[in-house]
Amino acid sequence: MQPHVTFLGAVLASLFAISIGGLLWWMLHPPAQIQPAVAKARYAVGAFKRILVPTSGVPYSEKGIELACRLGAEQKAEIVLTYVLEIPRTLPLNAPIPEVETQANEALERGKEIVELHHLVPILRLERAREAGEGIVKVAKDNEVDVIVLGIHPTWHGSQNIWGKTTDIVLRKAPCEVIIDKLPE
């Protein structure tokens, strides 16, 4: 049989060779295998579906909110923001403190804005307690959170407890994991 070369034939031959070659090349380059320990670690973080972040409206606690959002971004976690109003024992727990409440609501609104920037769902909780730590633990229990992200004061005032009283209570009594973010002094 005499050869019969056409432009269209050459194009089809090239298309065929490129497509088959490309497909086989892609197939032979699978992603690397993940070790069991790596998978466990990866999905342990992926299991954070509800993250609690206490805020006091100061920069270090707002950085804690940003950190929580990034932790929960992949699995679209709910971010529970709480501001605990510490009520002195001289007052009843439900006594109105308008100035502090306004400050708390402003802090929660700022936190909400951060959460929404990440397209996550914010849940706002204004809690009243005698001790901030006790209030945080209560919110954690009530909302069945998976982890608490706590941004703490960057300066150490030389007390015996490096964490401060609030952090100490949260660490001791929290029903879930606790992540502490302490900025350098």
Binding site: M1, P3, H4, T6, L8, G9, L12, A13, F16, A17
Partner: peptide
């Protein structure tokens, strides 16, 4: 099979 198709399109195919 690939060679048959490539050579076929190149040297024998008549649209």
């Amino acid at each position: 099979e690939g060679s048959i198709i490539i050579f076929g399109f190149l040297f024998a195919w008549k649209p």
